[in-house]
């Protein structure tokens, strides 16, 4: 299994642990990643709210570069994923848009490079059984709230690889790793995304709402698959508690960090130290023990 890997800007900075754990997990699972040479920013939300031309052109520059690697693109950031998929959709369905982007990039592009999210690769191309076969340190009984957020599934005709209102890919993967995902109603609610910088008060309210519901459903931690979801639930968790009331510390981990620990990767190999809300209790000090099933001590 081979993919052209598009990390995106967040995975070089605030989400370096998502990058490290994705690469390490793929290595263990036999998934080959080839970095797209000289990739550039996808433009993310600032591009699509500012310039319709730029919002298609920046992703297409990357899709054209990836065409030299004979494999589908795999990306981990939900925003990059949605922007690359949306650009493909527009190029395929809107002839004017295709002509415009070919003028802007001075190169032909037919919208044909397939784009997948790491979750799609893990659950559909590889399958939960392949993960189960590699588990050496099961997440025994760990109660996880799987949080998908917005852009992995919306709008469904462009991005979804599963049911958009009731996704279950993370639950299936975590069950294969021994965890006990909880049922909760906010799986696809929004965390406020890039309002993180321009309007942090909104983020506090939304993060608090998500974290309290996760707790109410019995979760000890949250699994995420998007750098902005992670920042808003982890780095901004303290602000959310100050503004809207105390809650037990609830780590928000990338799905690749949780699965990485289950297949035997070390805390360092999955970048566990990057978390603001500590999750070291997940890894028992006795290396022969399984991942702690103890209550989150806080």
């Amino acid at each position: 299994m081979k993919y052209a890997y598009y990390p995106g800007c967040s995975l070089e900075s605030t989400a370096w642990d998502f990058d490290r754990s994705t690469r390490a997990l793929c290595r263990v699972l036999g998934i080959e990643l080839v970095d797209i040479p000289d990739w550039v920013c996808c433009g993310s939300t600032p591009a699509h709210v500012s310039s319709a031309s730029l919002a298609v052109a920046l992703p297409v520059v990357n899709l054209q570069k990836a065409a030299t690697i004979d494999a589908p693109i795999m990306t981990a950031c939900a925003s990059c994923y949605a922007r690359l998929r949306t650009a493909n959709y527009k190029v395929q369905n809107e002839p004017d848009e295709r002509e415009r982007v070919e003028r802007i990039t001075s190169a032909p592009y037919d919208g044909g490079v397939k784009v997948q999210h790491v979750l799609d690769v893990l659950v559909n191309d590889l399958g939960p059984d392949a993960i189960r076969a590699k588990v050496t340190r099961p997440l025994e009984g760990l109660r996880v709230a799987c949080y998908y957020g917005c852009l992995l599934n919306r709008p469904p005709e462009i991005v979804a690889f599963e049911n958009a209102e009731h996704p279950s890919s993370m639950e299936r993967l975590l069950e294969a790793a021994g965890a006990k995902p909880v049922e909760w109603p906010y799986k696809t609610e929004c965390c406020g995304a890039s309002l993180s910088i321009s309007n942090p008060a909104v983020i506090s309210r939304l993060s608090h709402k998500l974290l309290s519901m996760a707790r109410e459903a019995g979760a000890q931690c949250v699994a995420v698959a998007c750098p902005l979801c992670q920042v808003n639930l982890d780095l901004r968790q303290a602000d959310a508690k100050l503004a809207h009331g105390d809650l037990p510390d609830t780590p928000a981990l990338y799905i690749t960090q949780l699965l990485g620990l289950a297949v035997g990767l070390s805390p360092d190999e999955v970048g566990l130290s990057a978390l603001s809300v500590n999750a070291d209790w997940l890894v028992p000090s006795d290396p022969t023990a399984t991942v702690s099933t103890a209550e989150n001590p806080r």
Binding site: H48, L151, R154, P155, L195
Partner: peptide, 11 residues
């Protein structure tokens, strides 16, 4: 300007 582009409305 408060729209977070979550696409729930579009969906």
């Amino acid at each position: 300007w408060l729209c977070a582009s979550c696409e729930a409305c579009t969906t």
